Every structure is written in structure tokens, then in C-alpha cells.
Computed example of a mutant assay.
Amino acid sequence: MLSLQDVIDYCDLDRGEIEAIAEHEHIPVAVAAELSEVLLCSPEGVCRLHTMIIENMAHALEVGEYEHVQDLSKTYQHLQRTHPIPENIGS
């Protein structure tokens, strides 16, 4: 049986990015890990990942969760480095 860490280790995203997907979609982390692999298969999916984290940051700001905003900001910076928004999206 696979542990949650095994599932996360299999993914091309880090734990913070996967947790951000889970938060945004209101799904368990293990399901978010599976979803992350699907999203990374297309330029549109990568853009959707970026949007999810940005929307999470906006929500955290709205409710005054400033420490969470900082955590999400670090997560987003990592996503930008490892999976930047494709330049030819929609072309």
C-alpha cells in the first residue's frame, strides 16, 4: 500500500503545490496529487495550476490569513521556477 508521502514523491510538484490544489478544489491531498499529474500534461493545465494558487492567495488575503499568504507566495514562486506559464498558450 502506498503512503501519502509515496504519492507526493511520485508527482512533479512539491507538497506545498499539491496542498494548494487540494485547498482550491476542496479535495484530499492524495486526489490533488493525481490531479496535478493531469494538469501538468497540457499548457492549459499549467496555467490552471498558476490560477489556483493565485486564487488561494487572494482568498487568504480577504480573510486576513497573512501567514498563509506568505506560504502560498513561496509556493507560487517555486511553481513559477519549475513550471512557468507557457508562452504559446492559446496559439
Rank of each mutant, 00 (worst) to 15 (best):
T75F: 04
E67Y: 12
P43A: 08
V63P: 00
H50Y: 08
R81E: 14
P84K: 02
E55N: 04
V69S: 09
L49V: 02
L61F: 14
V46R: 03
N88H: 07
T75W: 01
E37G: 12
L79Y: 08
L79C: 01
Q80W: 10
E37M: 10
H59K: 12
I85W: 02
T51M: 01
E65M: 03
L79V: 11
Y76L: 12
E67N: 05
H50F: 10
C41Q: 11
V69E: 06
M52T: 02
E44G: 05
Q77H: 05
A58L: 13
H68Y: 09
V46Q: 01
G45T: 07
H68W: 05
Q70H: 14
S36H: 03
M52N: 01
Y76K: 01
I53T: 10
C41D: 12
I85V: 13
A58E: 15
M52K: 00
A58D: 15
E62K: 14
Y76D: 03
T51C: 04
R48L: 10
V46E: 00
E67I: 08
I53S: 04
M52D: 02
L61P: 01
G64N: 14
H83E: 11
S73I: 00
P86C: 05
N56E: 13
H50P: 12
M57K: 14
H78M: 14
H50L: 02
E55C: 03
P84W: 10
N56F: 03
G64C: 11
S36Q: 07
D71H: 15
P86F: 03
T82K: 12
T75A: 03
G64Y: 14
M57D: 10
H68M: 12
V38I: 12
M52Q: 07
T51R: 06
E37Y: 10
A60L: 06
R48H: 14
S36K: 07
G45N: 11
H78P: 00
E44A: 10
L72P: 15
A60W: 04
K74I: 04
P43S: 02
T82N: 06
Q80D: 06
Y66A: 01
V46Y: 04
T75P: 01
Y66L: 09
G45F: 06
A60C: 15
T51L: 02
P84A: 00
